[in-house]
Amino acid sequence: METLPSLAGPFALGTFSAGDQAPFPGLIAGDRVLDLRTVPALGQPPRTTRDLLERWDDVLPLLAGAAAADAGEWRPLAGLRVHAPVEPRQVLQSGANYRTHVIDLAVAHEPEGGRPAEQVRAETAAMMDRRAAGDQPYVFTGLPSAITGPYDDVVLPSWCTKPDWELELAAVIGRPAFRVGRDTALAHVAAYTIANDLTARELVFRRDMPEIGTDWLRAKNAPTFTPLGPYLVPAGFVADPGSLRVTLRLNGQVMQDESTKDMIFDVARLVSYASQTVRLLPGDVLLTGSPAGNGLHWGRLLRPGDVMEGAITGLGVQRNRCAGEAA
């Protein structure tokens, strides 16, 4: 498991359990975890990290004090299971938000005998420029039931023929946000974490109903298709979410390695845009899109036994083994 030296800031939050006991919200500092249910300064004992996010402005300074004190019950990280760090009510996902990634996917999806690759690249690049100029991100909804832990197995469904990875920076909401402007949007982000937004590539487009377009329900929401975590790193510890390295290794080989600078729309713009329609709530998770280097680009999709290792600067590392669905 990943420990704190790879994390930005002096502490982070997560969800942990020991043996068959119920999961609890914890503060991780170094190689120890503080059971936040045992910290009197927090008042009503939190049952989940979402309880903390509900009163984030009041809780954050108390967490900083708890991290520096010996009060409460501390446990060794090595003896604990690490779960997804939060259970969101809503998951929002940004599609087509990395310039190089979108161009690569357009080339990969071009039918055999279709337009030349260079023509597809040029036309897609022009489309991306128009989107950026028009200030219109593409955001859709995901399902919380697809979330799994940062070290749990990812189950590849028997029906899925083209399972692919998409490592992403995820913003976690603290203050509720509804119709907020870009200039104030980041004030509503409590923390950042890592998400891997797995996709069944063969189901992205509805071949039977091309006029409908994409089918994100089937393509992205199978159980375990969204590994999340390991931890919630407070936003104040992340100097610039627009300059983080996103790296995914498959069986030790680097497949994705890109900066969030390649995003077309930054975190502030995505939060603001989503909030124009949706009332964002504490604990909600907003995925910001995936950089280039997906399996479709490499011609190498996921198989049982594969191990994905995803890292983002200052946010730790998640490792997930792919398992075939049991008969």
Rank of each mutant, 00 (worst) to 15 (best):
residue 17 S to P: 07
residue 23 P to A: 08
residue 190 A to G: 14
residue 202 E to T: 00
residue 164 D to W: 14
residue 141 T to G: 11
residue 309 E to D: 07
residue 98 Y to F: 14
residue 272 S to C: 12
residue 235 A to F: 05
residue 97 N to T: 04
residue 239 A to M: 04
residue 161 T to V: 10
residue 83 H to S: 04
residue 289 G to T: 03
residue 236 G to H: 14
residue 252 G to C: 07
residue 201 R to E: 08
residue 133 A to G: 10
residue 167 L to H: 08
residue 130 R to W: 04
residue 184 T to F: 07
residue 52 L to N: 03
residue 180 V to A: 06
residue 70 D to C: 09
residue 30 G to T: 01
residue 31 D to N: 09
residue 100 T to C: 01
residue 210 P to R: 02
residue 172 V to N: 02
residue 63 L to V: 09
residue 117 A to S: 15
residue 152 D to R: 10
residue 232 L to F: 05
residue 40 P to I: 02
residue 103 I to D: 10
residue 271 V to Y: 00
residue 74 W to C: 12
residue 110 E to W: 05
residue 221 N to L: 06
residue 66 A to V: 07
residue 55 R to L: 03
residue 325 E to D: 10
residue 152 D to Y: 04
residue 52 L to D: 04
residue 240 D to F: 04
residue 63 L to N: 08
residue 104 D to T: 11
residue 4 L to H: 11
residue 42 L to T: 10
residue 12 A to H: 04
residue 192 Y to I: 13
residue 77 L to P: 13
residue 301 L to Y: 15
residue 295 G to H: 12
residue 122 A to C: 09
residue 181 G to Y: 02
residue 223 P to N: 07
residue 71 A to Y: 05
residue 286 L to A: 00
residue 317 V to K: 03
residue 218 R to F: 03
residue 312 I to W: 08
residue 143 L to E: 05
residue 221 N to R: 03
residue 73 E to M: 04
residue 242 G to H: 12
residue 111 P to D: 01
residue 85 P to G: 13
residue 211 E to G: 05
residue 207 R to W: 01
residue 78 A to T: 15
residue 3 T to P: 00
residue 262 D to H: 02
residue 241 P to Q: 11
residue 187 A to D: 15
residue 34 L to Y: 01
residue 114 G to F: 09
residue 267 V to E: 00
residue 47 R to A: 14
residue 263 M to C: 00
residue 17 S to D: 12
residue 36 L to C: 04
residue 165 W to N: 08
residue 325 E to R: 12
residue 216 W to F: 12
residue 31 D to Q: 13
residue 223 P to M: 08
residue 238 V to S: 04
residue 165 W to L: 11
residue 223 P to F: 01
residue 21 Q to S: 14
residue 24 F to N: 12
residue 181 G to H: 06
residue 307 V to S: 06
residue 287 L to A: 09
residue 31 D to F: 10
residue 72 G to W: 05
residue 75 R to E: 10
residue 216 W to N: 05
residue 232 L to N: 13
residue 140 F to G: 10
residue 185 A to K: 10
residue 166 E to F: 08
